[in-house]
Amino acid sequence: NNDALSPAIRRLLAEHNLDASAIKGTGVGGRLTREDVEKWLAKA
């Protein structure tokens, strides 16, 4: 759900042209964290 994304995470996803639904969030309530996105980028 994009409503649950912080502005910083939205920007990070946009910079790398990523789809938030492709990344499993580990934050509160399954929210994406910066670490989630960075780990996903490291694997890609």
Rank of each mutant, 00 (worst) to 15 (best):
N1L: 13
N1G: 13
N1H: 14
N1Y: 07
N1F: 09
N1S: 13
N1M: 13
N1V: 13
N1R: 03
N1I: 13
N1D: 14
N1T: 12
N2H: 14
N2Q: 14
N2V: 13
N2R: 07
N2A: 13
N2S: 13
N2K: 11
N2I: 14
N2E: 14
D3H: 12
D3V: 10
D3Q: 11
D3E: 11
D3Y: 02
D3P: 10
D3M: 10
D3W: 02
D3R: 07
D3S: 10
D3I: 10
A4N: 12
A4K: 10
A4G: 13
A4H: 14
A4S: 11
A4Q: 12
A4V: 12
A4T: 13
L5M: 10
L5E: 05
L5I: 12
L5S: 03
L5V: 09
L5P: 05
L5Y: 06
L5T: 05
L5N: 04
L5G: 03
L5K: 01
L5Q: 06
S6R: 04
S6W: 10
S6D: 15
S6P: 12
S6Q: 06
S6V: 04
S6M: 05
S6Y: 04
S6E: 15
S6T: 13
S6H: 10
S6N: 07
P7D: 15
P7M: 10
P7W: 03
P7G: 08
P7I: 11
P7S: 08
P7V: 11
A8R: 08
A8P: 05
A8Q: 09
A8L: 08
A8D: 15
A8G: 06
A8S: 11
A8M: 07
I9L: 11
I9H: 03
I9F: 04
I9A: 03
I9G: 00
I9Q: 03
I9R: 01
R10I: 15
R10D: 13
R10E: 15
R10L: 15
R10N: 10
R10Q: 15
R10P: 01
R10A: 10
R11K: 15
R11A: 15
R11Y: 13
R11M: 10
R11I: 12
R11F: 14
R11L: 15
R11W: 14
R11H: 15
R11E: 15
R11V: 14
L12Q: 05
L12E: 05
L12T: 03
L12R: 02
L12P: 02
L12S: 02
L12A: 06
L13V: 03
L13W: 02
L13K: 00
L13Q: 00
L13Y: 01
L13S: 00
L13M: 05
L13H: 00
L13F: 06
L13N: 00
L13A: 03
L13G: 00
A14K: 11
A14P: 00
A14S: 07
A14R: 12
A14N: 07
A14G: 05
A14V: 05
A14M: 09
A14L: 12
A14Y: 09
A14F: 09
E15I: 14
E15S: 08
E15N: 08
E15G: 05
E15Q: 14
E15V: 10
E15Y: 13
E15D: 09
E15P: 00
H16W: 09
H16D: 00
H16I: 04
H16C: 07
H16Y: 11
H16F: 09
H16S: 04
H16V: 03
N17S: 08
N17A: 07
N17H: 11
N17M: 08
N17P: 02
N17D: 08
N17Q: 09
L18P: 01
L18N: 01
L18Y: 06
L18A: 07
L18R: 01
L18V: 14
L18H: 03
L18C: 05
L18T: 05
L18G: 05
D19T: 09
D19G: 05
D19F: 05
D19P: 06
D19E: 09
A20G: 08
A20L: 08
A20W: 07
A20F: 06
A20H: 07
A20Y: 06
A20V: 10
A20P: 14
A20S: 07
A20I: 10
S21H: 08
S21V: 08
S21T: 12
S21A: 12
S21Q: 10
S21E: 09
S21I: 06
S21N: 13
A22S: 10
A22I: 12
A22T: 09
A22W: 15
A22E: 11
A22Q: 14
A22K: 12
A22R: 09
A22F: 09
A22C: 07
I23K: 01
I23P: 01
I23E: 01
I23L: 11
I23M: 08
I23G: 01
I23W: 05
I23T: 01
I23S: 01
K24T: 14
K24G: 07
K24A: 11
K24E: 12
K24R: 11
K24F: 08
K24W: 06
K24Y: 07
G25L: 03
G25M: 03
G25P: 07
G25N: 02
G25T: 04
G25F: 02
T26M: 04
T26R: 02
T26S: 10
T26F: 04
T26N: 04
T26D: 02
T26A: 04
T26K: 03
T26L: 05
T26Y: 02
G27A: 04
G27D: 03
G27W: 02
G27R: 00
G27N: 02
G27L: 04
G27H: 02
G27K: 01
V28D: 11
V28M: 11
V28P: 15
V28H: 12
V28Q: 13
V28L: 13
V28K: 12
V28Y: 09
V28W: 08
V28E: 14
V28T: 11
G29M: 06
G29N: 11
G29P: 02
G29Q: 06
G29K: 04
G29A: 08
G29I: 03
G30D: 05
G30K: 03
G30T: 02
G30L: 02
G30H: 04
R31F: 07
R31V: 13
R31W: 06
R31K: 13
R31G: 07
R31E: 12
R31S: 12
R31L: 11
R31P: 03
L32P: 06
L32V: 12
L32F: 04
L32I: 14
L32Y: 02
L32H: 02
L32Q: 02
T33H: 01
T33I: 04
T33D: 01
T33S: 04
T33N: 03
T33G: 01
T33A: 01
T33K: 03
T33V: 05
T33W: 00
R34D: 12
R34H: 11
R34F: 15
R34G: 05
R34Q: 14
R34M: 15
R34Y: 15
R34V: 15
R34K: 14
R34N: 10
R34I: 15
R34E: 14
E35W: 09
E35G: 07
E35N: 08
E35V: 07
E35Q: 12
E35Y: 07
E35D: 11
E35A: 11
E35F: 08
D36E: 02
D36S: 00
D36H: 00
D36Q: 02
D36R: 00
D36L: 02
D36Y: 01
D36W: 02
D36K: 00
V37A: 05
V37M: 03
V37Y: 02
V37N: 00
V37P: 00
V37Q: 00
V37D: 00
E38K: 06
E38W: 13
E38L: 15
E38Y: 13
E38P: 00
E38F: 13
E38G: 05
E38V: 11
E38S: 06
E38D: 09
E38Q: 09
E38I: 13
E38H: 08
E38T: 07
K39R: 14
K39F: 12
K39S: 11
K39P: 05
K39M: 14
K39W: 11
K39A: 14
K39H: 10
W40S: 07
W40A: 15
W40E: 10
W40V: 12
W40K: 04
W40D: 01
W40T: 07
W40Y: 15
W40G: 03
L41C: 04
L41D: 01
L41A: 04
L41H: 10
L41F: 06
L41M: 06
L41P: 00
L41W: 06
L41G: 01
L41I: 14
A42G: 07
A42I: 12
A42Y: 08
A42P: 04
A42D: 10
A42F: 09
A42L: 11
A42V: 08
A42H: 09
A42T: 11
A42N: 10
K43T: 14
K43R: 12
K43I: 14
K43W: 12
K43F: 13
K43P: 05
K43A: 14
K43H: 13
A44P: 10
A44H: 15
A44L: 15
A44R: 09
A44K: 08
A44I: 13
A44W: 15
A44S: 12
A44G: 09
A44Q: 13
A44D: 10
A44T: 12
